[in-house]
Design a binder for these strands. Structure first.
Lengths: 163, 163
DNA sequence: GATAAAGGTTCCAGCGGTGGTAAGGTCAAG
DNA sequence: CTTGACCTTACCACCGCTGGAACCTTTATC
């Protein structure tokens, strides 16, 4: 089985398969007389394993360990679970971060989208609780976008000019 | 103001500031007689803008456009909103992907974590609806982890040996 | 004045996982 | 025999930095 067929069968591109071989994630494939890589069903099987693990978001480093565990008949269930749980924790962190970002951005978009009148409630919010340095830095992206979007064109603040 | 102070004031590391200068995101800083970069308050201000935008997850490419808009007095509100909305769409996609992955992984963890008895409901799920190739590939990561975790040690399937 | 520490400077390499390119060898079919 | 599809190695580029090496400048201390 050539690399192209192995790629199609596993879902990993030929390019990436070579990369995995170079980096030692998978052992070097057997070569034919003419130098072509030859993949067995077992090789494809391993590649598919990798493909699925990557789709679950496991890093190559984690997959390396998963593969080791896979081939180790004396593995402990706890090891696998630990990997999965650790990965889950990472995903949880990413999710929280992403959601926080979305909340902020959504807030911004919702208020930026409004009419062209100068009164903008979010300005007060920024100047109040979540302001911190925004109070001192009236041209931070958040503040700028909001204040600028909220003002009519003839009252545009002197952006890019004030400091 | 030296690069270290600018870094501390903006929240961007000195290394990254140089990187931004090299890549043209920010204009080259003025140099002192001895070759040190000198940053004005306006420069720091711009850096802080960039820092906040990045914390909102905007790519450097997007930030480049945001900076252009920032400095363009004749900008259109729609342009800014379009950028923000496009970015929001990207975040939405990432969120959905992340959540789907989490759901799968959570499912796996929950069932892998159970006792050591061989009966595992998720096996039936895998063999049924969401199985597709899993039916043909009993050693896919999902199937493997689940089946292996579900079986007692003396009944471990011939993993890494079957194909 | 010497010295050392703390800053600055440049350039080069690397992370992961590709995508693209080039320049060539090989295989199957017409 | 030629054509075209596939394979090979090898390199550069991307994202957004980050670290290190090797060297220069400023500042502080003895």
């Amino acid at each position: 089985m050539n690399i192209g067929q192995a790629a199609q069968a596993s879902g990993i591109s030929a390019k990436t398969i070579r990369y995995y071989e170079n980096t030692g994630l998978i052992p070097a494939a057997i070569r034919t007389g003419s130098g072509y890589r030859s993949f067995s069903a077992k090789d494809v099987h391993t590649l598919r394993f990798i493909h699925r693990a990557r789709r679950l978001g496991f890093s190559v480093h984690d997959i390396r360990q998963l593969l080791t565990l896979w081939q180790d008949k004396n593995r402990a269930s706890a090891d696998v679970k630990a990997l999965a749980l650790a990965h889950m924790a990472v995903l949880d962190g990413k999710l929280a971060e992403l959601q926080a970002t979305q909340r902020t951005l959504q807030h911004l978009i919702a208020h930026c989208e409004g009419d062209d009148r100068p009164d903008c409630p979010i300005l007060d919010d920024l100047a109040g609780e979540g302001a911190e340095r925004l109070r001192d830095e009236p041209s931070s992206p958040l503040h700028w976008m909001v204040s600028w979007c909220a003002l009519p064109a003839d009252k545009h603040p002197p952006i890019g000019r004030e400091n």
